[in-house]
């Protein structure tokens, strides 16, 4: 069952990604991108990361891609805009990409995962996969843990251990990202506001 679902989602994700590469129409590319990203969200659900999956759907599919299409429409100088890339570039890029892929896959396959797990176990005493407080049954109820971690409390690390100093979690990164988003919001609004150049410099 899991294998079946994985196959479906992985095929959709990879197929969508390849379709993005091969497609020449931007909006179609966006559509395939949605398929690819949505399937990735499915993979996330399979990996017990339900919150991440939901976020992926909401932000990527619902937000980012809509934004991209919006951008397409704002910048379209004609209907069904296609800017074709040359076949030579395509071949070159696919060659490099294949090399890259091959290298990554070979590397991944060479890793001895069980051996690594054993090493970790010998170093830390317990299996790194069985952390107290973290959901081993894998039902994917990660929302509370993630929320607490973003607010500075780590259930998965602190519960059940007699630790002097509780971890601080991700409070600071969370705040930084918040501020970063605000900055981005303002920056994007500033960059995108309509400016009418009096004279466009011919050179440069």
């Amino acid at each position: 069952m899991e294998l079946l679902l994985f196959t479906v989602f992985a095929a959709a994700a990879c197929g969508g990604a390849i379709a993005v590469v091969l497609s020449q129409n931007v909006v179609r590319m966006a559509f395939y991108l949605v398929i690819s990203l949505g399937s990735t969200a499915g993979l996330f659900f399979m990996l017990n990361a339900d919150f991440v999956g939901a976020t992926q759907l909401l932000i990527y599919v619902g937000g980012t891609v809509v934004l991209l299409i919006f951008g397409v429409m704002l910048t379209a100088s004609g209907p069904f805009l296609t800017i074709k890339s040359s076949p030579g570039d395509m071949v070159q890029a696919i060659l490099v990409g294949a090399l890259f892929l091959g290298m990554v896959v070979v590397t991944v396959l060479q890793v001895d995962w069980d051996g690594n797990a054993a090493k970790l176990e010998s170093r830390y005493g317990v299996s790194s996969l069985e952390r107290p407080g973290y959901n081993q049954r894998g039902e994917g109820h990660t929302t509370r843990s993630i929320g607490a971690a973003l607010l500075g409390a780590r259930f998965d690390k602190d519960l059940g251990k007699n630790r002097e100093q509780p971890s601080t979690g991700y409070l600071l990164p969370f705040e930084i990202v918040s501020v970063h988003l605000l900055v981005v919001l303002i920056g994007a609004a500033y960059l995108a506001r309509a400016k009418r150049r009096v004279n466009v410099p011919s050179e440069f």
């Binding site: 993005v20 590469v21 800017i83 890339s85 570039d89 070159q92 490099v96 892929l101 990554v104 991944v108």
Partner: peptide, 16 residues
């Protein structure tokens, strides 16, 4: 890896 490589190729080939 496939997604990553597709992304790289996409970046490298798209003129848009």
């Amino acid at each position: 890896a496939v997604l990553f490589v597709c992304g790289v190729i996409c970046m490298a080939t798209k003129r848009n």
